[in-house]
Measured scan of single mutants.
Amino acid sequence: GALPANLDDMKVAELKQELKLRSLPVSGTKTELIERLRAYQDQ
């Protein structure tokens, strides 16, 4: 599914939920979580 547009405004817990939905690792800082989601979306 498409990512929420406001990733930077989301809480870390919400970002981790998005990562879990995509079976991605949820470790790292908020910035790393956002980068991981964006990289996944670009595939």
Results as ranks from 00 to 15, higher is better:
Y40H: 14
G1I: 15
G28D: 01
V12T: 15
A2V: 12
P25F: 00
R22F: 00
G1A: 00
A5H: 13
P25R: 04
K20A: 11
G28C: 01
V26R: 08
R36T: 08
I34E: 07
G1V: 03
L19R: 00
V26Y: 10
L24V: 04
D42E: 13
L37E: 02
S27E: 11
K16N: 03
R38L: 06
D9R: 13
T29H: 08
T31G: 10
K11E: 12
D42K: 11
Y40R: 11
G28Q: 01
A2R: 11
G28M: 00
E18P: 00
L21R: 12
R22A: 09
A5E: 14
A5V: 14
I34L: 08
Y40K: 08
P4C: 14
A39R: 14
S23Q: 09
E18G: 01
K20Y: 15
A2E: 13
L33M: 12
E18I: 00
K30G: 02
S23L: 10
L3N: 13
V26N: 02
G28H: 00
S27C: 06
E32K: 06
P4D: 14
L24P: 01
L19W: 00
P25Y: 05
R36E: 02
S27M: 05
L3E: 10
N6P: 00
V26A: 14
A2W: 08
R36I: 01
R36W: 01
A5K: 12
L15V: 09
E32N: 04
K16T: 10
E32A: 09
K30W: 01
K16W: 01
R38S: 08
T29L: 03
L19C: 09
N6S: 07
G28L: 00
A39Y: 13
E32P: 02
A39P: 13
K16Q: 14
K20T: 08
L21V: 11
Y40D: 15
A5L: 11
M10S: 05
L33N: 15
L37M: 07
Q41Y: 04
I34F: 10
L21H: 11
I34R: 08
A39Q: 14
S27V: 05
V12G: 06
E32G: 01
D9A: 14
L37S: 03
L7S: 02
V12I: 07
L15M: 02
P25W: 01
E14F: 05
L33T: 05
E18F: 06
L19M: 13
L7P: 04
Q43V: 15
K30P: 05
A5P: 00
K30I: 07
L3A: 03
L33G: 06
R36G: 07
Y40P: 14
L24A: 05
S23V: 06
V12N: 01
